[in-house]
């Protein structure tokens, strides 16, 4: 049973990062190739603050989220006004730069050997409650005009601009929220695995999250979360050699995206409305 809880915490923490990618790539169509670097920053900053400086866990997480938001603001300032593929390029460069920094600033980060001796502070309750709050937050965004603005920008930026949406501001807000969510996920992961190293936060990790979002369906929050749980759990369930496992994983993704390009769930969302309708009908039948 213990094993499942440990795996579950990892999945919950990573799912929070997937939520960030869902907002950024799924809802707004912004491809950030350096999203994992924010996870790395969150993990390193909070771990260093707790282990070396001795700050409380919660304060360290808050500081790491603030720093990541500020960095996201700066990166966004340079890249969000120009073309979409420049955003991908600049975030990619940012990710590489952050990893280089982790590897070279040995006296603080431990370099390529990684940073260890992090206390295990991520309790199962904390991880699962955080994920629930994260989902609630994104769900709230999807219920407001925020979702419509996002979809407008995703499908035609120029038209959105003409319709009076402040495209730059909107994208900036999304990017900052995504960065903060990812940093939070990074802190949770660091205090769960108790060890961080630069290699974990390369662009391939970012791409894995993007794949998860598209696998589950980028128009469906439910789909993304189900996809996230399935695909993050798959490596634990398929316990044979690593290489074959990844090949199987890739094959599944290719099949799903080829057969159902809209993703596993399309635009379908889990909601309680059909259930309520069922109740109402029963009441009518009774009366």
């Amino acid at each position: 049973m213990d094993f499942y809880i440990v795996v579950g915490i990892g999945i919950a923490a990573n799912s929070i990062a997937v939520l960030g990618t869902f907002m950024l790539t799924g809802m707004n169509g912004l491809f950030s190739l350096g999203q994992a670097a924010f996870m790395g920053l969150g993990a390193y900053i909070s771990a260093i603050l707790v282990v070396n400086v001795g700050l409380p866990f919660a304060v360290a997480i808050l500081i790491s989220m603030l720093i990541c938001s500020a960095l996201a603001f700066l990166v966004g300032l340079a890249s969000l006004r120009i073309r979409q593929d420049f955003f991908a390029l600049v975030t990619f460069g940012f990710g590489q730069a952050v990893i280089a920094f982790f590897q070279e600033y040995v006296s603080v980060t431990g370099g390529a050997l990684g940073f260890s001796n992090i206390p295990n502070l991520t309790t199962p309750t904390l991880a699962f409650v955080s994920l629930a709050v994260g989902i609630f937050l994104v769900w709230g965004f999807r219920r407001s005009h925020f979702l419509r603005d996002s979809l407008a920008i995703r499908s035609n930026e120029l038209a959105a601009k003409v319709a009076g949406i402040n495209v730059f501001k909107h994208k900036m807000i999304v990017f900052i929220i995504a960065a903060a969510l990812t940093a939070y996920a990074g802190s949770l992961m660091a205090f769960h695995t108790r060890y961080v190293e630069p290699k974990m936060y390369g662009w391939i990790t970012t791409v894995t999250w993007i794949i998860i979002v598209f696998f589950g369906g980028r128009d469906s929050l439910t789909g993304t979360m189900v996809g996230s749980i399935l695909l993050l759990m798959a490596p634990e369930l398929l316990r044979f050699t690593t290489a074959y496992r990844i090949i199987l994983y890739c094959a599944i993704i290719l099949i799903i995206i080829n057969v159902r390009p809209k993703g596993l769930f399309g635009t379908w969302e889990l909601s309680i409305k059909p259930l309520l309708r069922l109740f109402k009908r029963k009441k009518q039948e009774v009366s």
Binding site: G29, F31, I211, F214, A243, I247, C250, A251, N258, P261
Partner: peptide, 29 residues
């Protein structure tokens, strides 16, 4: 397949990255 279904461009991006990972693992094996 995606081309035949006139899928959006982003799907090509997703499958292409998946193919990169797949081919890399074939080399690892």
């Amino acid at each position: 397949w995606i081309r035949m279904q006139k899928g959006q461009l982003v799907y090509f991006f997703v499958t292409s990255v998946t193919m990169l990972m797949l081919l890399e693992q074939i080399l690892v094996i």
